[in-house]
Design a protein around this nucleic acid. Structure first.
Lengths: 212, 212
DNA sequence: CCGAAAACTTGCGGAGCCCGCAACTTCTGG
DNA sequence: CCAGAAGTTGCGGGCTCCGCAAGTTTTCGG
């Protein structure tokens, strides 16, 4: 990878990081594009060469994660059933909540990076970020649908692969939402497993006899 | 209903209609808030008293439809299972694609209002509108989740009702997407039925032996 | 029927976002 | 080493959205 591309990636990450950090610290309304650019050491104009909105910059890490999920699904061994593959890929991508970035991550089972947690909490509570997350989510689901169509030998233009992709997206979204709102905190992994498992089971109505 | 509220509703609808019509005619980029307000006979400032963005105005009809779905689910007879109730409510709300507005709608089985079709097509193709649709969709899903929680006697703070709501949203979204892209045109109702049925069945992987 | 209070509209002003454009600087490939 | 591709930056401008305060219309109690 050339120097050029490396620098570009660095700038992009610096901008995204700065955007998230500042938004968590001060609240979204109190962060100007100017501030983010300054924190990343570039001009405000350059910010908009990388991201077409503040929201896009802030959510880009989470969105990238979704993109990797689609790739992972393609890479899972063919012996696995579709839902096995999806579940394992999702757990691999969303299962650990430590800063997978700057070293120190152990096996990442329980140590939620508080900064990232706060970031995700912001994303799912601020309307503008929810919107961006969903918008980008539908793009990611398109890629996921392609992966699913390939795996199952169906046509991506049909209902099935898109339904699966959209449902997986919904499951991850709901699991994430429950995770950030959980008090006391719980690990994300079991939530994702549970959500995807339930969706794959058709979400049967729970017997009301359980709570008489 | 007082004069006041009636006028308010009229203005809101006039704005929403004008926004959608103009956006379809000229493309989203070539419509100013000023134009929409003028077409509805109010000032540009007033536009923003009703809608906090152009996208919100354009998508509001479709979003209102989702809101009514949540209400319908509450009203379905208790004898129905959850998924029956959801399916019937969705078919009632999304099943007919004629202009349910200005009279003439027959039984609304096949006569898609071309203007509305074009509108929905715009909504699912323009990124800004996709985003707004998704953002508002998550709000609607919150209401739907509450309805589902009530019906099933579960806690809306748990995974289950939210998963169902999100999955239903995904199903409708996918069905709508397939509908507007179908060439030649197909009626929406069967797509919605199929999508919800498949989701309620857990989206089993189709046997690949079908297409050898 | 009337007069205050509440609700709504509107123009103005301003902060901020985002983009096109045209220089300028930096990296890349032959 | 040197063209040209790629990236950065300042400038200018159009647009969105909001707060505010004045003006207008509807409501409602007496």
């Amino acid at each position: 990878m050339g120097l050029r591309e490396r620098k570009k990636l660095e700038t992009r990450q610096a901008l995204s990081r700065a955007a998230l950090r500042l938004a968590v610290e001060r609240g979204l309304e109190n962060v100007l594009v100017e501030d983010i650019a300054a924190a990343a050491g570039v001009s405000a104009r350059t910010f908009n060469n990388y991201f077409s909105s503040k929201a896009e910059a802030i959510t880009s890490r989470q969105v990238d994660r979704g993109r990797r999920l689609a790739v992972q699904v393609r890479l899972r061994p063919q012996e696995e059933s579709l839902w096995e593959a999806i579940l394992e890929a999702a757990l691999a991508e969303f299962g650990s909540e430590s800063g997978s970035e700057s070293g120190g991550a152990s096996e990442g089972v329980e140590q939620p990076d508080p900064e990232w947690t706060a970031g995700v909490r912001l994303m799912v509570s601020e309307p503008a970020l929810i919107g961006e997350l969903s918008r980008a989510g539908t793009e990611v689901e398109r890629e996921l649908a392609r992966a699913i169509a390939e795996r199952t030998g169906t046509d991506v233009e049909q209902l099935y692969p898109r339904l699966v992709a959209a449902s997986v997206g919904a499951a991850i979204q709901v699991a994430t939402d429950r995770w950030v709102h959980a008090d006391p905190p719980v690990p994300l992994k079991p939530l994702v497993r549970e959500a995807i498992t339930q969706v794959a089971a058709g979400l049967p109505e729970p017997s009301t006899s359980g709570t008489p």
